[in-house]
Structure formats: C-alpha cells, structure tokens
C-alpha cells in the first residue's frame, strides 16, 4: 500500500509540475462558468432552481471533456514510461507491477477529482455569488454530479491504462485512446439512436435497452445525472430514463465495474509484458 501511495504522490507531483492539474482545472472552470451564465438565458423564467440547469449543462460538458482528459492522462502511463526508459528503472525496485498501475491510477484520479471539484465548484460559487437560493435537494444532485463525473473519469482512465498496457508504442496508444473516445462519446449514441429510429416505434424490450445503455459508460453517467429529479424535465433523457428500469445503485455499480475490469486486465497484461 505504501508503494501505491508513493507512486500516486509522484504522479500528482508530476501533474502539478507539468501544469496538467492547473490546465484541466482552469479549462473545466472556464467552461463551467460560461455554461452557467450563458446556459441560464434560454430557460428564462421556467422556475426551476438555477443549479439544476447548471447540472444539466455541466453533465453534458462532462460527457465530452472528462473522458478526453482521463484518456489523455492515462494512455501514456505505461507505454510512455517504457519508451522513455523510466519504467525499466522503476521495476528494478522492490515494487509489484500491480502497485505501479494502481498507484498511477490513484494519482491520476486525484488530479481528475481536484480539477472537477474546483472547476465545477467555481460554477456553483458563481451562482451563489449571483444571489440565487439553492435548495438542499439541488446541492445533493450537484454533489452526486461531481462524484459521478470523477467516477466517469475513473472509467476512462482505466480504459486508458488498458490501451497503454496493450500498445507497443506511445503514438499507437494515443490513437486507440482517441478512437475509444470517439466511439463511446459520439458514435455509440448515434448508432443507438439510428437503431431506435430504424425500429420505427416498435417497442424495444426493456432488458435489451438496459443492456445497450449499460454497455456505454457515458450513457450510464447520463442516466445517473439527467434521468432523475428536476434535471430529467430539462434534458431529453427523461423519456429514456423512465423507460429503462435502472436504479442509481445499479448505475453506480455499472460504472465501478467499468473501472475495475479494464484496470484489472491492464494489470494482468502489464504483469506478463516483458521489458
């Protein structure tokens, strides 16, 4: 465990040194602030709590940005260190390969959590500063939005390690990572939508729809944040969320599974890999 923390500490140290932490926090804060001010214009006087609107806009932002940031951080983690030659030295130390992977994962997760918390927190702070009153239910939704955003980041970080453990070159890992991002964030939903249209209103079995939604971590995230409470009315997800029989615990479990499986496989592949 101490080794894991040492590795995580070094990742955070490197992240702060090469401005990754600063850059991602500023990016998320900047976009969150923009969305929270601009995003409130179209709603006019609908009467919903303003933070709920922000949650909807920030969730959409998260789906695009957080997986990308997580993949950018993680795709380099194993193959990059191998290429630079630092992995060879590290593995000559009394440390297991799984400790290396988990330590790096923990470090990157801390960076992501910091950036999300402070980036999105800036938006919430701005709303309070503007003199809006926010109910406790909305705060809860906001907190769970941030927590699930970090969890979504964890999923894609884990997938990033898997590509990093498989790829023999850094550029390959980068290419695969971009492909994975495109697939889950853009292509998958379009294909799903296309399939629904092609079905021409025929009822799709709930079980199949659930399965299709759980097969994409970004959809799980979407259901988790947009499918409930005040947010569902504001987003297009309400209809699907009602249809699908997935409760928040199931969704969180799905995200956890999406994290642990790639991470486990990445560790396994990395352990077998010869330097």
């Amino acid at each position: 465990m101490r080794n894991v923390l040492t590795i995580a500490g070094k990742e955070i140290q490197e992240g702060t040194r090469n401005r990754w932490v600063l850059a991602t926090t500023l990016l998320l804060a900047g976009l969150a602030l923009t969305l929270s001010f601009l995003g409130s214009a179209p709603t006019g006087n609908v009467g919903v709590n303003k933070l709920d609107v922000v949650i909807v806009s920030l969730s959409s932002l998260t789906i695009f940005l957080v997986p990308l940031i997580a993949l950018l951080l993680s795709h380099d983690a194993i193959v990059g260190e191998m290429e630079r030659g630092t992995m060879l030295l590290l593995l000559s130390y009394p440390i297991g390969r799984s400790e290396v992977v988990f330590g790096k994962f923990l470090g990157h997760l801390a960076i992501l959590a910091f950036a999300t918390l402070f980036g999105y927190g800036a938006a919430a702070a701005a709303i309070i500063a503007a003199g809006n009153e926010i109910g406790s239910g909305s705060w809860q939704a906001f907190a769970s939005m941030i927590a699930s955003s970090v969890l979504l980041g964890a999923v894609f970080a884990a997938i990033g390690y898997l590509t990093s453990a498989v790829a023999s070159e850094r550029t390959t890992a980068g290419g695969i990572a971009i492909g994975i991002w495109l697939f889950f964030v853009l292509i998958y939903d379009m294909a799903l939508l296309g399939a629904l249209v092609a079905a021409q209103g025929r009822a799709i079995p709930t079980g199949l729809l659930d399965l299709l939604l759980l097969a994409n971590p970004t959809d799980v995230y979407r259901l988790l944040n947009l499918g409930s409470r005040g947010a569902s009315a504001l987003s297009a997800m309400g209809g699907i969320a009602d249809h699908a029989g997935l409760s928040p615990p199931v969704l969180v479990a799905a995200l956890a599974l999406w994290t642990l499986t790639p991470l486990g496989v990445a560790t396994l592949i990395f352990s077998r890999r010869e330097l």
Binding site: R17, N18, T86, Y93, I95
Partner: peptide
C-alpha cells in the same frame, strides 16, 4: 541498478527524484 542511458522524469528535481526512489526502497 543503473540502466544504460538512464532517464528520469524531466520535470522533477534531482532531490525529488532521489526521494521518490528512496521511499520505494
């Protein structure tokens, strides 16, 4: 162990690098 053409993380200082390895050992 001293690898051939040893490399370290460029952003960290010598002290930070050695401390990291000392902790691992």
């Amino acid at each position: 162990y001293l690898p051939e053409s040893v490399s370290f993380n460029m952003a960290l200082s010598g002290r930070e690098t050695l401390r990291f390895y000392a902790r691992l050992k």
